[in-house]
Amino acid sequence: MPRTSTSGATSSPTPAVDRAFQILEYLATISPEAGVTEIANALDINKSTCYNILQSMARTGVVVRDSRFPVYRLGPKLVELGTASRRNFNHRDDVKQMVRPLVEKFGITCLIAQPLPGYRGFVVTDRYLPRGEDILSAPIGQVYPVNAPAMGRAFLAFEDIHGSAIAPADFGLRTNADLDALLRGADEAREDGYGRSVGEQNQGINAVAAPVRGTDGRVNFLLCIFGYTQHFPDDQIDEVGTALRALADQISYRVQGVAGYSDR
């Protein structure tokens, strides 16, 4: 397989919008508080342009400027927008009702995660926790990288990437060996209908993930069940993975009208 990245630069019809999102991502992931000069230098944006974009976003509450120091941080408007996005997630109530019995049966957490564009990872949009103590969870809005073992394999299993010119860096990896291992895991997930992680991302934590696909065959969102090994032992992975795959198929058919893995 070629190892050349296809992520060549292309001009944007709305560069100011692109830069605004770059600024938001910088404040979200790199520096929670930053001034105009720091942001402009880090993102290679003209300082005057950076200032004007920050001022525009500050007027709507997307960012806020500190009252004591010349720094900006993410603003409350994003909380409002994020809440609306989560509330407007199609078929959220249906998915919740379908996921709940599986969560209670196995006593482990299920996350709903949607893929971000450009193989930038998966953002948690909802979660379903079982009753009990010492339950593993993840916050709404947490982003997992595309190379996260269970979710990454389940997602890439149904992406048309074989034969494409891709590079390790496209998936946050360093070497061709890492990329080959990720793609082998995706091949296994395609056969099984779900991706797995046996203590790979975090020691003592197991996970399985299965895709819910749209009418175009692409992954709309992922179901990911994970937990500490005392709640989710290695010998239970196949059972949970098979049950999660069946549930993802049911959701795909019920909310998307798509035949699932088991109907192929």
Rank of each mutant, 00 (worst) to 15 (best):
Arg213Asp: 11
Gly214Thr: 04
Thr215Met: 09
Thr215Phe: 07
Thr215Leu: 12
Asp216Asn: 11
Gly217Ala: 12
Gly217Asp: 13
Arg218Phe: 06
Arg218Ala: 08
Arg218Cys: 02
Arg218Val: 02
Arg218Lys: 15
Val219Tyr: 11
Val219Arg: 06
Asn220Gly: 01
Asn220Pro: 01
Phe221Gly: 00
Leu222Cys: 05
Leu222Thr: 02
Leu222Glu: 07
Leu222Ser: 03
Leu222Asp: 06
Leu223Asn: 06
Leu223Tyr: 14
Leu223Met: 08
Leu223Thr: 01
Cys224Thr: 05
Ile225Cys: 11
Ile225Gly: 03
Ile225Trp: 15
Phe226Gln: 05
Phe226Arg: 03
Phe226Thr: 00
Phe226Trp: 09
Gly227Asn: 04
Tyr228Glu: 06
Tyr228Lys: 11
Thr229Pro: 01
Thr229Asn: 06
Thr229Trp: 02
Gln230Arg: 14
His231Phe: 09
His231Trp: 07
His231Lys: 11
His231Leu: 05
Phe232His: 02
Phe232Gly: 00
Pro233Lys: 07
Pro233Met: 08
Pro233Tyr: 11
Pro233Glu: 07
Pro233Trp: 13
Gln236Ile: 02
Gln236Asp: 09
Gln236His: 12
Gln236Tyr: 12
Gln236Thr: 07
Ile237Leu: 15
Asp238Tyr: 07
Glu239Phe: 03
Glu239Arg: 08
Glu239Ser: 07
Val240Arg: 11
Gly241Ile: 10
Gly241Glu: 12
Gly241Phe: 15
Thr242Lys: 11
Thr242Gln: 10
Thr242Tyr: 10
Thr242Cys: 03
Thr242Asn: 08
Thr242Arg: 09
Thr242Ser: 08
Ala243Ile: 07
Leu244Asn: 05
Leu244His: 06
Leu244Ala: 12
Arg245Pro: 01
Ala246Phe: 15
Ala246Ile: 13
Ala246Gln: 15
Leu247Asn: 08
Leu247Ser: 07
Ala248Ile: 08
Ala248Tyr: 12
Ala248Gln: 14
Asp249Ile: 06
Gln250Cys: 02
Gln250Ser: 13
Ile251Trp: 10
Ser252Lys: 02
Tyr253Leu: 13
Tyr253Asp: 05
Tyr253Cys: 00
Arg254Asp: 10
Arg254Gln: 11
Arg254Thr: 07
Val255Tyr: 03
Val255Thr: 13
Gln256Ser: 03
Gln256Tyr: 14
Gln256Asn: 12
Gly257Asp: 06
Gly257His: 03
Gly257Asn: 04
Gly257Pro: 03
Gly257Ala: 01
Val258Cys: 09
Val258Ser: 07
Val258Phe: 14
Ala259Cys: 04
Ala259Gly: 01
Ala259Phe: 14
Gly260Phe: 14
